[in-house]
Design a binder for these strands. Sequence first.
DNA 1: TTTTTTTAGTGAATTTATTCACAGATAATA
DNA 2: TATTATCTGTGAATAAATTCACTAAAAAAA
Lengths: 207, 207
Amino acid sequence: MDLSNNTIERICKIFGHLDALEKRGVDFVSSKELAGEIGATEYTIRKDISLLGGPGYTRKGYEVKSFKKELGEKFLLTKRRKACIVGLGRLGTALLDYENFQEDGFEIVAGFDCSVNKIERIRTSIDVFAVSRLEEIVEARDIELGIVAVPAESAQEVVDLLTKAGVKGILNFSPVKVNIPTHIVHLDMDFTNALRFIAARFIMKKT
Amino acid sequence: MDLSNNTIERICKIFGHLDALEKRGVDFVSSKELAGEIGATEYTIRKDISLLGGPGYTRKGYEVKSFKKELGEKFLLTKRRKACIVGLGRLGTALLDYENFQEDGFEIVAGFDCSVNKIERIRTSIDVFAVSRLEEIVEARDIELGIVAVPAESAQEVVDLLTKAGVKGILNFSPVKVNIPTHIVHLDMDFTNALRFIAARFIMKKT
DNA sequence: TTTTTTTAGTGAATTTATTCACAGATAATA
DNA sequence: TATTATCTGTGAATAAATTCACTAAAAAAA
Ligand SMILES: NC(=O)c1ccc[n+]([C@@H]2O[C@H](COP(=O)([O-])OP(=O)(O)OC[C@H]3O[C@@H](n4cnc5c(N)ncnc54)[C@H](O)[C@@H]3O)[C@@H](O)[C@H]2O)c1
Ligand SMILES: NC(=O)c1ccc[n+]([C@@H]2O[C@H](COP(=O)([O-])OP(=O)(O)OC[C@H]3O[C@@H](n4cnc5c(N)ncnc54)[C@H](O)[C@@H]3O)[C@@H](O)[C@H]2O)c1
């Protein structure tokens, strides 16, 4: 299948919202409600969903449980995925113990840092290693995702390591553009850019 | 002016890249190079820039220094903006001491938490307060941006407080959809969703 | 000096994304 | 039971975003 990034992003949000609804014991949800929740129109949502063929029911909407299951299967979002965090500084250690990842199907199974001191001092239930063992551990533990939380100047180096180790996706928190081979899916989370975006919209706002 | 979100986002990235180039002492940059750096085509970049009327020079490109200055002025990105962080847990404290914000023109001038214990224990150069003083401090210090790093269940409450206090923008790190009045610019940073997006693209990728 | 190459700027063409409009279905209501 | 209101699904229309194609300018090379 061949969905646009916009559609994939919305689908992910829908999945998250279905999860919340399921936990709240809600049985059905309409495209209108989903739209409000994820910031889109009901038309767009229905188009998105129609691409996946999910069945909706007249005057009821979509059945939360089965729809979530369907999305989970189609996108393999129910498959538990293993991830590692590289760089166990302030941000990295916060991420290491972020329980939501676990709940949402992402298992942080290893942390890496170049500082042996740091590794010894960290108190966490997750295994932490010297970054020199990254390749070995990523392979041994079938890690698919790498989360980069090292300083900007080390980011490329770490990305290269992760690439070599064979991860399939990278989430980059360092505020630099890193070179990542196209066969690896990646996303940058740049907080400064987020603040700039907000500030720029103070002035230039389109609705 | 009335720019699309896509354009604004690219402009912010361009601004960031110009900043990096300036620090590296580079004088000119072409649309092609910018395009490669921020993940767009040279055509799109030129269209974006043409909307702002920035002058480019034949066979040289854009003059880094003056172009950055121009963008900074047009979008008020050079204006230093004051921000506060609400919720000084693992993520909040990491953000509190993130020096890049400072460098990039965002000044974290206050932190808030509901736990008095926590406030007393925190070691940072930034002033921290009980959340009950939020409104007072936001007004007194002219804080324009609120960064939300409290647990999901407190997010709406904190957003309401920030709204009441009169911030102009909110960056939300809690993984829930909060209700924010339309006159406030806001952006959600949902890490789980980011990982889901990456995972979904393992399967459904469009280029 | 002349030619070639590189680059911006921009209207037109194309592609992509969103929204509309309405048929079909069914639950709720009268 | 008949009617009304609500919801999906989808082709058509519209809108938006991107890409193309070409002009003009000027630096570099010949
Ligand atoms: N702190 C924040 O709130 C924050 C916010 C946004 C972005 N970031 C970005 O996230 C990254 C980490 O920020 P931080 O504040 O946690 O930094 P930090 O300095 O606290 O931690 C960085 C860690 O990376 C380790 N490291 C350095 N080079 C390494 C390498 N080659 N291999 C493995 N480990 C290595 C260091 O030993 C250190 O433990 C930075 O790129 C920063 O710009 C941080
Ligand atoms: N830890 C992470 O790496 C991470 C990653 C992504 C998202 N998040 C999100 O960021 C938020 C914070 O995460 P965390 O791990 O730092 O949590 P945390 O529990 O470590 O910290 C939350 C802090 O918020 C404070 N707080 C609670 N209610 C408050 C209120 N009404 N007003 C002011 N302060 C209040 C608490 O006292 C605590 O200090 C959560 O919503 C979490 O889902 C965290």
